[in-house]
Computed example of a mutant assay.
Amino acid sequence: MTQATSTQIQLVSRPAGWPVPQDFRTVTVDLPALAPGQVRVRNDFISVDPYMRGRMNDVESYTPPFALGETMTGGAVGRVVASTSDQFGEGDLVVHALGWRDLAQGPAESFSPVQEVPGAPESLYLGLLGMTGRTAYVGLTAVAGLRPGDTVLVSGAAGAVGSAAGQFARLLGASKVVGSAGSARKVELLTGRYGLDAAFNYKDAPVREQLPAVIPEGVDVYYDNVGGDHLEAAIDVMNRDGRAALCGSISGYNAEHPAPGPDNLHMLTTKGLTLKGFTVGFYQDRFPEFQQKAREWFTAGRLVYDETVVDGLDRAVEGFLDMMGGGNIGKALVKI
């Protein structure tokens, strides 16, 4: 099996506050000939996600930080171009975690075959039908225990996970779904395209002031992608026995100093609230259930999706920074 070269992006300095292009570099890496049981994949799309910002800090978390001077990792989808494994043949579509590069190579166990859904583009296996969708689904079901008739609030509802969570909540029987977003255009998309019952622009006024009017009946389930002022405001309006699934806190990812916590945590006691953080990897037993439902909903035309795509690995850092600044609608991707 012949050698090949792979263009890859590495982290060279840990950002203080907002990342800048100088924190990254592009390198060309020589890939050796395939060893027995390995595959080589040409990535078609790579994912850029908020959690990657946390991995740029040298702190303990649920996943190790990126090492300086080494190629970063992340979700990717592509096709096998060479294989010495019985598990894969040339042309097979796979998903894996060797993103931030155009050509990936490793043991066959590092790659997962995609069961393709008619009409679904390859990119969707990183989004609505992939890790993004799984994160939204398990947060609503396994973490927050969504029940038919619940009122649901989703923060960051025009992003990748948020737009999936809003739609899934509706399909799972929520009586009302409300979302927050950061522009008038996104607010219009939430109600006009994603089918939410109401939405608001968190930049128009403090979230704490807007929520009581937007959702006067209170919140039973809160799906949090933002943290900060959104979490504090949600606690104010949560109903007794309300449940919050804490998926992310993008509002604080670039902060140079920790922000004060919510000032109303006493309501967890007086209202009997449950706030539970999670990462999707803890709920792999729910993946088959999600896969079945998501495929059924997509095939029936009950799901819509948007993608913000930049072309070329040379623009991957640009795409990541734009996503962190809220410039994306739906899933943020880099097309290789």
Rank of each mutant, 00 (worst) to 15 (best):
T7Y: 10
Q10L: 14
P15V: 07
P15Y: 12
A16I: 12
W18M: 14
W18P: 05
W18V: 14
P19H: 04
P21N: 06
Q22M: 11
Q22T: 15
R25Y: 07
T26C: 06
T26S: 12
T28M: 10
V29W: 10
V29E: 15
D30S: 14
L31A: 05
A33T: 15
L34G: 06
A35S: 15
A35N: 13
P36S: 15
G37L: 09
Q38W: 11
V41P: 05
R42S: 13
R42A: 14
S47K: 08
V48F: 13
D49W: 11
D58R: 06
T63H: 11
P65K: 03
P65N: 01
P65H: 03
L68V: 02
L68I: 04
T71S: 06
M72F: 03
M72G: 00
G74L: 05
G75I: 06
A76D: 08
V80P: 09
S83R: 13
S85E: 12
Q87L: 13
Q87H: 12
G89F: 08
G91Q: 11
G91W: 11
D92V: 12
L98P: 06
D102G: 15
D102T: 13
P113M: 13
P113H: 15
G119I: 07
A120T: 06
P121A: 15
P121V: 12
S123Y: 08
S123N: 09
L124A: 14
L124T: 11
Y125T: 05
Y125L: 04
L128V: 15
L129Y: 08
L129N: 07
G130V: 09
T132F: 05
G133P: 05
V138H: 06
V138N: 04
L140Y: 04
G145P: 01
V152N: 02
V154E: 02
V154P: 03
A157H: 01
S163Y: 07
A169E: 00
L171D: 01
G173C: 00
G173M: 00
S180C: 00
V187D: 02
L189K: 06
L190R: 03
G192N: 15
L196S: 03
D197G: 00
A199F: 08
A199E: 04
F200Q: 00
A205F: 00
A205E: 02
Q210E: 03
L211G: 00
P216A: 05
G218T: 02
V219N: 05
Y222M: 04
Y223C: 04
L231A: 09
A233I: 09
D236L: 11
V237M: 14
N239V: 10
R240H: 14
A245T: 07
L246C: 11
L246P: 08
I250M: 13
A259I: 08
G261L: 12
N264L: 02
L268N: 07
T279V: 15
V280L: 04
G281N: 14
F282T: 10
Y283S: 01
Q284V: 09
P288N: 07
E289R: 01
Q291T: 15
A294V: 07
R295K: 14
E296S: 11
E307R: 06
V310I: 12
G312M: 13
V317Q: 10
V317S: 09
M324K: 09
N328Q: 07
